[in-house]
Design a binder for these strands. Structure first.
Length: 223
DNA sequence: GCGACAG
DNA sequence: ATCTTGTCGC
């Protein structure tokens, strides 16, 4: 399985890229039959020394926004941060966190890119292949791609384009705040992904489940 | 060769 | 991501 490839991964730059290209071809970019009642936000914090980390997943009921479940998991981080290879660093912490939840989320929103990635396999997409569930990539900054200037009003957005591909949407979810980068993770369309994010960003810049997960992950190693 | 570069 | 205080604006 994919999880073995990841766990026993003898870190090699070229092998990692081959694996990503392989997995990227399995990503489904269209909507799947989907009845969303439980939405999960996923985030990871890294310790000062950079050798340990804490993953957090917070699951909320929709549309009540009540917290249905949450889970945190701490462990060693063996791979350094390398732009484009984030999933190899964080998924080993995220997977166990999700396995410890007492509910099964219908939709995952991950703090990072989906297909808005050089090889179309950001961490949200990679996670989608693990869970088999619909996932959305919601990043706070750009990894690749270009876009027109985005208006200053809430809801204003522009397509994120890389080469000949539309890889995501850049959107202003809060007045005068930085943009966020939305992309397909897996088993969902870009339009649907953006709609969900907008519905979950009523009060803050980031989708509520992701914001909650970010707070739950806290600042690891600082306490 | 040089710059860019999720978290 | 993390290191860090106060401060300006919605």
């Amino acid at each position: 399985m994919i999880i073995d490839q990841l766990h026993d991964f003898n870190f090699s730059f070229s092998e990692a890229i081959k694996l990503q290209n392989n997995l990227a071809s399995k990503i489904i970019r269209e909507d799947q039959p989907l009845d969303v009642k439980l939405i999960a936000g996923v985030d990871v914090s890294i310790g000062r020394q950079g050798s340990t980390g804490r993953a957090a997943v917070v699951v909320m009921h929709y549309p009540s926004f009540e917290i249905a479940a949450s889970s945190v998991y701490e462990g060693e981080v063996n791979i350094p941060y390398i732009p484009g290879l984030l999933s190899f660093r964080e998924l080993p912490l995220i997977i166990p966190t999700i396995e410890r939840l007492n509910v099964v989320p219908d939709l995952f929103i991950v703090d990072g890119q989906g297909i808005a990635h050089p090889r179309r396999l950001g961490i949200a997409s990679h996670l989608g292949l693990f869970t088999g569930k619909p996932t959305i990539g919601c990043a706070k900054s750009r990894l690749c791609g270009e876009h027109a200037e985005v208006g200053m009003h809430v809801g204003d957005s522009e397509f994120l384009v890389h080469g000949d591909d539309v890889i995501g949407k850049v959107v202003r979810t809060k007045k005068g705040c930085k943009l966020i980068y939305i992309s397909i993770g897996h088993r969902i369309s870009l339009e649907t992904a953006l709609n969900w994010v907008l519905k979950l960003c009523k009060t803050h810049r980031l989708p509520e489940p992701v914001r909650q997960a970010h707070m739950a992950a806290g600042r690891y190693g600082t306490q």
